[in-house]
Design a protein around this nucleic acid. Structure first.
Lengths: 172, 172
DNA sequence: TAAGATTGAATCGTCAATCTTA
DNA sequence: TAAGATTGACGATTCAATCTTA
């Protein structure tokens, strides 16, 4: 192709492969969850973020930020989760404009039920496919990429400082 | 969360960050192309695959395989690209069932015009954010992940054998 | 009957407009 | 007027059904 000279052959090779991962890995995560739990990965992630939040609740804007979604998208997904009884919308007492998304007991049961299969899938497709050293390299690389992609670090609000080893407890 | 013990803290940290990249990087690629070229990344990729193919043409099934999409999705995207004059559908002479997607001159001009900006974006968001060594690590990691995700290697049909350094000329 | 490809119906995400409260 | 959130309209993707040729 015309622009071939813009990247070296090695860089291109790395990028072509990485781009393929970008396409296939999210699809793999989605299909396991959809098959086993009738949940998209995004829906799973919303439930997971709520399950880790204080009081199992988060205002819509905060939840949108942590899941890196637009508020519009989140609003629609929460509506679906609400219809299934996994989440409830509770208006804030302090500020009449804000809505808190609250994980219901049923929602908690759902995420607890779904988590092992999902984690197993992550383990199979990512963690077990790499050496411990490569997992560490991937962590470093991801951190560097996120600095470009998400300078504010909104999505990593729940994650420890970037260059320090994490001891935090948090699932995905 | 409930399943926290299933991954070590370091593995989780790596995964949380990588998952964020999986979400944000495709979005970044899309928005540059949509802003500058009115093309989704997937549409760009379809044009790019055609531009590299022999005779600038590929049958629908082969194109679906290289772009890792379903045939249904590809069919709709090709319809859109056809409506814009970038691609033409040409029935095969040999087999009346197959349709070849052919890059038109206009489509060639489009991809030639779009490529530098896209490559620059890849460079900015990925290649320049990493050291040469890290790019190499990412290549290795991606290769390992693809072995799990895409054992047939259909998507990498145009890429050289996985453990050999590539000298091939190919764009993204 | 199977392979290649397209399409209708339903679902999901996005953009802009809107509504409500601060 | 701005902030938080929802919604209508529209475009994109998926699944299953369909059509055509081998």
């Amino acid at each position: 192709m015309a622009q071939t000279r813009w990247l070296t052959a090695d860089q291109q090779d790395a990028w072509v492969r990485f781009a393929a991962v970008l396409e296939l890995l999210p699809a793999a995560l989605n299909s396991q969850l959809e098959r086993d739990e009738q949940l998209s990965h995004f829906e799973y992630f919303v439930l997971a973020m709520l399950s880790e939040a204080h009081d199992r609740r988060l205002r819509m804007t905060a939840l949108a930020s942590r899941t890196n979604s637009t508020i519009a998208r989140l609003s629609r997904v929460v509506s679906r989760l609400e219809a299934q009884g996994f989440v409830a919308r509770v208006p804030s007492d302090d500020d009449g404009r804000v809505i808190n998304a609250v994980l219901t007991d049923l929602g908690w049961q759902k995420i607890v039920h779904a988590a092992p299969g999902h984690v197993e899938n992550v383990r199979h497709n990512v963690v077990d496919a790499l050496t411990a050293q490569q997992v560490e390299q991937l962590r470093t690389i991801s951190t560097l990429l996120l600095e470009r992609l998400d300078p504010k670090g909104a999505m990593l609000a729940s994650v420890r400082p970037s260059t320090t080893r994490s001891n935090g407890k948090r699932g995905d």
